[in-house]
Amino acid sequence: MSPGSTRTRRRFWVDPRFVIGLVLVAASIAGVSAIVAGSDRTTAVYTARHTLTVGDRLTKTDLVETRVRLGGAADLYLSPTVEPGLLVTQTILAGELVARSAVGAAAGELTTSVVVDVPGRLAARVVSGSVVDIWSARATGPGEYAPPTILVAQAVVVRIVIPTGIIAADNGQSVELLVPKANVADVLEAIMNGDALAIVPVNTPVVP
């Protein structure tokens, strides 16, 4: 038997407390890193390159992409995912974040919304987004009306106004409609004259 064969191999022993300590240190470092990363999380939004006034149409040259910490408020501001071309509805100062509430669709140049009272019930197909014709019958006397005619064609229903308060009228409904600005005067005149208004859906459902 050789002398080397009588030697006892030295066993490597690790204190479990040492392992636990390493795990705790690693977890602490990971936690701190996560907190730092979370606190440094920013969102890309638009700021105004120069002062924008009501009626201006937004272009990319008017906007600067900026990364800021907004947290849960990010959805309140215009982000680069939104295509320019919107209209400014509130003054936005140079360097100010562009709030979504300060801009509107370009279609607002040609259309606007009005609320009309319609006697009786609405057709079931009259819902938000429906395309409708507004018919009007001019009042000629107490309870008397001229033959109805189309007052506005191809109006769009924005919403059905839900009555609130102690007394809710059950003999009609109010409807907010998107109409061409060129027809607003006619609609307001019909309302002030007490004309009878009706809303008729344009689209006809396909019958199976």
Rank of each mutant, 00 (worst) to 15 (best):
M1C: 07
S2A: 10
S2G: 06
P3A: 12
T6A: 13
R7C: 09
R9D: 12
W13N: 09
V14H: 12
V14Q: 10
V14I: 15
V14T: 15
V19A: 11
I20L: 15
V25G: 04
I29H: 07
S33L: 10
A34R: 13
A37Q: 10
G38P: 00
D40A: 13
R41G: 03
T42S: 14
Y46E: 01
Y46M: 08
T47V: 14
A48H: 00
V54F: 08
G55P: 01
K60L: 10
T61A: 15
D62H: 12
V64H: 06
V64W: 00
E65W: 00
R69A: 08
A74P: 00
L76F: 09
S79Q: 07
P80G: 07
P80L: 07
V82I: 07
E83D: 07
P84S: 04
L86E: 02
L86Y: 00
L86I: 00
T89L: 13
T91Y: 01
L93I: 03
G95R: 11
L97A: 08
G104V: 05
G104R: 02
A105T: 14
A106D: 12
A107M: 09
G108H: 06
L110H: 14
T111P: 09
V118N: 01
A123N: 11
A124M: 05
S128D: 12
V131P: 01
W135A: 02
A137G: 07
P142C: 02
A146E: 15
Q154S: 13
A155L: 03
V158A: 03
V158M: 09
V161S: 05
T164G: 08
A169F: 04
N171Y: 10
G172M: 07
A182F: 06
V184Q: 03
A185Q: 13
D186V: 05
E189G: 08
A190S: 13
N193T: 04
A196R: 15
V202Y: 01
V202Q: 10
